[in-house]
Design a protein around this nucleic acid. Sequence first.
RNA 1: GCCGGUGUGGCGGAAUGGUAGACGCAGGGGAUUCAAAAUCCCCCGUUGGUAACAACGUGUGGGUUCGAGUCCCUCCACCGGCACCA
Length: 847
Amino acid sequence: MSRYTAAEIEPKWQQAWESAGTFTATRDDAKPKYYVLEMFPYPSGNLHIGHVRNYTMGDVIARYKLATGHALLHPMGWDAFGMPAENAAMTTGVHPKDYTYGNIAQMKAQFAPLGLSFDWSREFATCDPEYYGQQQALFLDFLRAGLIYRKKAVVNWDPVDMTVLANEQVIDGKGWRSGADVERRELGQWFFKISDYSDELLTALDGLDNWPAKVKLMQSNWIGRSRGLQFAFSLVDEPEGHDRIEVYTTRPDTMMGASFVAISPDHPLARQLEDHDPAVATFNAECRKGGTTEEALEKAEKRGFDTGLRVIHPFDTAWELPVFIANFVLMDYGTGAIFGCPAHDQRDFDFAIRYGLPIIPTFLPTADADPVLAEAYVPPKTETVAYVKGFAGEKMQTGNAAIDAAIAFCEANGVGAGVTRYRLRDWGLSRQRYWGCPIPVIHCPDCGVVPEAKENLPVELPYDVTFDVPGNPLDRHPTWRDCTCPACGGKAQRETDTMDTFVDSSWYFARFTAPRATTPTVMDDAAYWMNVDQYIGGVEHAILHLLYSRFFARAMHVTGHLPEMAIEPFNALFTQGMVTHEIYLTRDASDRPVYHLPQDVQDGKLADGTAVTVIPSAKMSKSKKNVVDPDAIIAQYGADTARWFVLSDSPPERDVEWTAAGAEATSKHLARVHRIASDIAAMDDGTGPGDADLTRAMHKTVHEVTLGIESFGFNAAIAKLYAFTSTLAKSDAGGAGRKLAARTLAQLMSPMTPHLAEEVWAMLGGSGLIATAPWPVANPALLTEDTITLPIQINGKRRSEIAVPVDMPKDAIEKLALADEAVIKALNGAAPKKLIVVPGRIVNVVI
RNA sequence: GCCGGUGUGGCGGAAUGGUAGACGCAGGGGAUUCAAAAUCCCCCGUUGGUAACAACGUGUGGGUUCGAGUCCCUCCACCGGCACCA
């Protein structure tokens, strides 16, 4: 009897698929097409167990769709631009290009033994000039179509290294290398006009039936449509060029409770004041310290500066309000100015206490409540329950209706206008970095900003750069910057900013439909393969990547690069959980964190006995070193074991904490399947007493596993396969029946453990490759039992059970239930208060 | 701070509002063996009880329902995102 040796069978079948071209995407009009895509990886150089889980899931879907008769597209590529390559260049001196392509080669080699059904003939990396050149072509088309523009935007500025920092590089408000206090500084940048699509991107979410509700909700909140009032406060003493302050509020019903106006330190008025008043300049400079993230801004201590300016309340010319500059007002949102209503907003309440401002309630929980508040009273948004001091002295109720009424009242009285606003901001794509797609424009002293001519694309990154000083090496490259203006032919300079790597990943799915084309896409191929039928990736991409891709698909349609049917590029989305692991940490002499790999930690200690701090499970990341290397598991047990284990261990949408235990058990199970199959292969054909039972169990399993795969219930499907394996092992069916059952088992396992499945299939005389054998179909007649056990509850607690024919009518079940011994005893002669019979489910006797 | 999610035995987890704990791991017992490995069989939420059985039990506290892990509200803990990490 042969033994299960993964190391022998796995390369053999990988070779067989390769030479048969099993997974080469081929257009075939006789079949439905299916495009399955997993979010492509950043080539860190090391495949970790999270990748294995992610790509195995996609592989299961891909193999299942192939077996159910689809023309399959299942491509793979590399999201290859980004900061890590530049960081490596700075720390180890390796060139980002060599680093990246080296990592790609290494990771591709790690992918090979997993037996994934990728069509490698379509592979590309986003750092291939053939790819980013087409991205530059898209940029030029978008620019021409008015989808890209230039404006100033804030960045994190390291005043010591004189360089722009990513949010990740700002730690507690300080630069990660210099340790200097980071400042917010404005820079001219390129922007995609994604805000033009706010409403479209929001309403189109409704059509995404096969997207997780939580992702649609997150996107919806991110876009953040709000209805509010925009109006202006008149300034009492008008500083030069300013006679009013425009504000936007979603709570116009609280206007009568206003007690101050606050403007952003970046508001034009604040900037003007700072030019004349050193105290304002000092305050504003203080406000500009720290990083640019919304989190940092929101968590910062709320501070204000009284400008001494006063404004007039629009409904009472005698009512003057002070104007503060406040660090919590953001120039990017609304108008960069707000009015504060301390009575009904906790942040404003705290601010009012701090600066001695009045707290004027316009609503109270009840008509007789104390109007002196101890904390802000936030009235319910949707219900109309509170007592309200409304406009012009009358009382009204709160809620959305009141907000609408407030807008109407203000409009009628010539105070502002109701407007719809979106939280979504335009997408800044400029990055002051080397390792990205160069922005193909030229700055000409005579013509200004001039797009590069398409025939000059790709604008390739120069190789001869150095990373010995901070900043973008393109800025100090001796010759690359110099060029001729495409418009006037005079001397000019290239833009040295490169594109945000989110641009790279916003259209790669479209590029896979024609990866070698000399245009970004080919309409005919895009029309055939798009959309992605199933997209799979981490929930951490639920907002930005997916929103940007949805925008890009629309922009590509507008510029003639995608058909209209592809403007929502992902038909179905599955967000898989992350593989997490504990983080092991020590501190160096200057108290900086030093991370350690799990393999270097034993019982909470390093090899030299140093105790490590254990941080609870977190997303695996290279920088935190909490990664698990799948190579060792594959070497010891084989790919099928690794694949089965990552799928069986927990539901795919949930995070899973990796533990080494369990791989051994999986390996034993696969060996058991192999052993059972070889025993069955040796049997003579014929019938046996267990034929009917085995057939029934087989059809049930086909049904359940098929449903499990289609609904991403991989762990539950695997549980059914365990159960069926035991059934088969114990069956006394004849050889013919058992061979069929074993072949079917192999087919059902084939998406998860493709190599073992092929081996078993061949052993049992299956024809051709199991990968392309038609998927088994369950006979519906064999899926139901003749008799079922019905639990009987008394007052909702299970007390007994009865066996009934599956189609027994309700009244017959009632009679049978009332005749049950436990029920008779509980009733004690009395009639039940209520008798609930749910056919096929349960009986509940209420006493 | 804001937005979204998750919480069930020793562990991973299962469960269209209908028998909570499927399946797997770990653990215990047994068979086989000279012995072991491998394999096969049985037990396995907590407490009480010889047992039958009973009570309790799905993060907390409430609610809706004949019936709640599942629906609603409150709170707690953890995870993800917050626009320059990818």
